[in-house]
Structure formats: C-alpha cells, structure tokens
Simulated scan of single mutants.
Amino acid sequence: MLEKLSTLNEVYHYLDSLFEKNVDSDTLFASGYLRGFISLAASDKADEQEVITTPLIELISQKLIAAKTELSPQDNVIVQNFWIALQQKM
C-alpha cells in the first residue's frame, strides 16, 4: 500500500518525482500546473512540513475552478482528473 502524502513537502516531492519517471506528457503538464496552484494556495504557510488539511484542499479546488478559463477544455479535464487522483494520495 502506498503511503499517504500528508505534508506540503511530501506532495511537492511526489510531483517533482514524476519528472524523473516515465509518465506521459499530460501527467507532467497537470502535475506542473497543479504544483503552482498548491504553492499559491499554501503561500501563507512558510513551513513545507505543513500538514495537508481539508481546508487547504478545498482552497486549491476553488482556485482551480476560478482559473478554469486559463486552460482549453481538454487541458482542464486533464488537470481536474489529475487533481482528483492526487487527492486520493493525500
């Protein structure tokens, strides 16, 4: 069983590690895009050991919804699907 990602640092490490693995370009795009949103949502937290909380996840989700028009419909689906999968790891 995979260990849950419980801190910002663990999430960042996981997302960064995808670039070293043999994953498809859609996954790399979505992980990079989401990393930016996670960093933005957590920007008031200086500590990367900050525990992932439901309010933080909800804030990231809200920011993604607000930024939906930045992406093409297809890219938005890719990012949303990756976000759903990432939440399962947290």
Rank of each mutant, 00 (worst) to 15 (best):
E10H: 09
P55I: 03
W83S: 03
R35H: 06
S39D: 08
A85W: 01
A85C: 01
E48M: 04
I60K: 02
P55K: 04
F82S: 07
T69C: 00
Q80M: 08
F82V: 03
S72W: 08
L64G: 07
F37L: 13
L15T: 09
A41I: 07
L59H: 04
I52H: 03
D24G: 15
E58P: 00
Q87F: 00
I57Q: 12
Y12C: 02
N22E: 15
I65A: 07
L2R: 14
N81S: 12
Q49E: 12
K4D: 13
L5E: 05
D24M: 07
E3A: 13
M1S: 12
H13N: 13
Q49H: 10
Q80N: 06
V77P: 00
D26T: 07
K68L: 06
S6W: 05
F29Q: 04
I52E: 01
L2H: 12
S17Y: 08
Q88P: 00
A67L: 08
E48N: 14
I60E: 02
N9P: 00
F82K: 09
S6E: 15
I38M: 13
L64S: 08
A41F: 10
D26C: 06
E3R: 13
N22P: 04
V79P: 05
S31Y: 07
D26M: 06
Y33G: 03
Y33H: 14
W83C: 02
S61W: 02
K45W: 06
K21W: 06
S39A: 11
V77W: 01
E48H: 08
Q88A: 03
Y14M: 12
L34D: 13
I38A: 12
F37M: 09
G32Q: 06
S43Y: 04
L5G: 02
Y33L: 11
D47I: 02
A42Y: 14
Y33K: 14
L2T: 10
M1Q: 04
S43Q: 12
L56V: 08
Q74L: 08
D44T: 05
E70P: 01
D26R: 13
K68S: 14
E50L: 13
T69W: 00
E70K: 15
L5P: 03
N81V: 05
